[in-house]
């Protein structure tokens, strides 16, 4: 979502040219990025292994770049299809691990993202890392299928560090494969 409008502009100048003439549209796209700093996702899915995964500090499996294509420091990375927050990959962690000194919240929300390499839909768990203040780097918002807080199962408007071992202080978000849909 980051600067989505500008990114698309480079790909499809004709379709976006009308918006190029508008200063407000431009500002709106900047604002969209700023909003991304606010929304912290997680579906209430309890994962007993979340804490252990955080402490491991690295991806458990090595895969070839071709199997898992894209840049984990980019909001456009395929696993981030439903993420909302700061990318742990830019904050001292990785796409599957928390930065030093933070703890992974065991309650999370999930998204279903299509891997462009194999065309399969993967279930992604966006566990938040908690205990240090917001990272502030690589904010990313992709609001697909977000719901209000009274529907918490799909709400990225809730700070899901709540109830975790490090309490409510949010740092960044991971994107961990749970399985194939």
């Amino acid at each position: 979502m980051l600067f989505k409008w500008f990114d698309k502009l480079t790909e499809n100048t004709t379709r976006q040219s009308a918006r190029l003439t508008s200063r407000r549209s431009f500002l709106a796209s900047v604002g969209t990025v700023l909003v991304g700093t606010a929304a912290y996702p997680l579906l209430p899915v309890w994962r007993n292994g979340a804490q252990a995964a955080s402490q491991a500090g690295a991806d458990p499996k090595e895969v070839s770049p071709g199997q898992d294509p894209g840049d984990p420091e980019s909001c456009e990375y395929w696993r981030y299809c439903a993420i909302d927050g700061y990318l742990c990959s830019c904050c001292g962690g990785t796409k599957t691990s928390c930065p030093p000194g933070t703890q992974m919240a065991p309650i999370t929300w999930i998204g279903t993202c299509r891997n462009p390499a194999d065309g399969k839909d993967y279930i992604i768990s966006y566990n938040d890392c908690c205990g240090k203040s917001a990272c502030g780097r690589c904010q990313c918002i992709r609001n697909e299928n977000d719901t209000p807080a009274y529907l918490p199962a799909n709400s990225n408007n809730i700070n899901w560090c709540s109830g975790g071992p490090a309490d409510v202080v949010y740092n960044c978000s991971t994107a961990i494969i749970l399985g194939i849909q």
Partner: peptide, 9 residues
């Protein structure tokens, strides 16, 4: 549809 929380004029 994903822009329901975007800024607008």
């Amino acid at each position: 549809p994903e822009q329901f929380e975007d800024p607008t004029d």
